[in-house]
Amino acid sequence: MNAVDVNHLTFSYNGLEAISDISFSVRQGTYLGIAGPNGSGKSTLIKNILGILRPQRGTVSLFGRRLDWFHQWDRVGYLPQRIAALDHHFPATVEEIVLMGGVNPGRAGLAHVLESLKIAHLSRRLIGELSYGQQQRTMLARALINRPELLIFDEPTTALDPETRDIFYSLTRKINQENNTTVILVTHDTGIIGQYAQQLLYLDKRVIFFGTFEEFCRSQEMTGFFGMGSQHLICHQHDEKKEKPL
């Protein structure tokens, strides 16, 4: 079964097309990386998949149901690029944020998620008092608390240092492999996608490439698009990852 189906999706802001005629499907349990340059429509695509924006043309389905009829949002976890409220003044604790929206995983469920992300000791602290890395782990805990079947990350590591970023991505791979959770990761860093994802969707307002890394590495068309050096670098990082243990 597919976790996500996007068919001929088009979306414009004030008459300017941000994405055009996008079609692809993501099978359950897949780790899909979405990459593309700035302004290529990555975030617009994600917002259409999540129902934040309404498709102007085309359709989006989650778990076989068109978005208009989809109500099982506890099956989906989302970690946005930026949270407006994450300033020093928002008076909520880590625990309140993880349980946001009336989620009730029980004390044991909450403790398990907080401990797995190493933030159990911060549960009573205010979110504004934490470092960016700790805030990001809190937001990841919120996304994971319902044990979602589909996890969507929109450039989640923009402000993280390289070490924390690697820990974060390793964790997403672990979640994908251990729980068979479908992961969609958006980043402008194709090197990162090469290391962690099984499939690649390269976007520049339209689909430039969609397929597995093996297909990407064999594609003459992509050699022409990226240049041999860049394509080789992405493929090399993907090959390295396969040998790396979790």
Partner: peptide, 20 residues
């Protein structure tokens, strides 16, 4: 509406992805 109000106050877009 406390759970919904809290979620919307924290981040309206995020609240929408939670089905609010």
């Amino acid at each position: 509406f406390y759970p919904d109000l809290f979620a919307i106050t924290f981040d309206e877009e995020l609240a929408r992805t939670m089905g609010k």
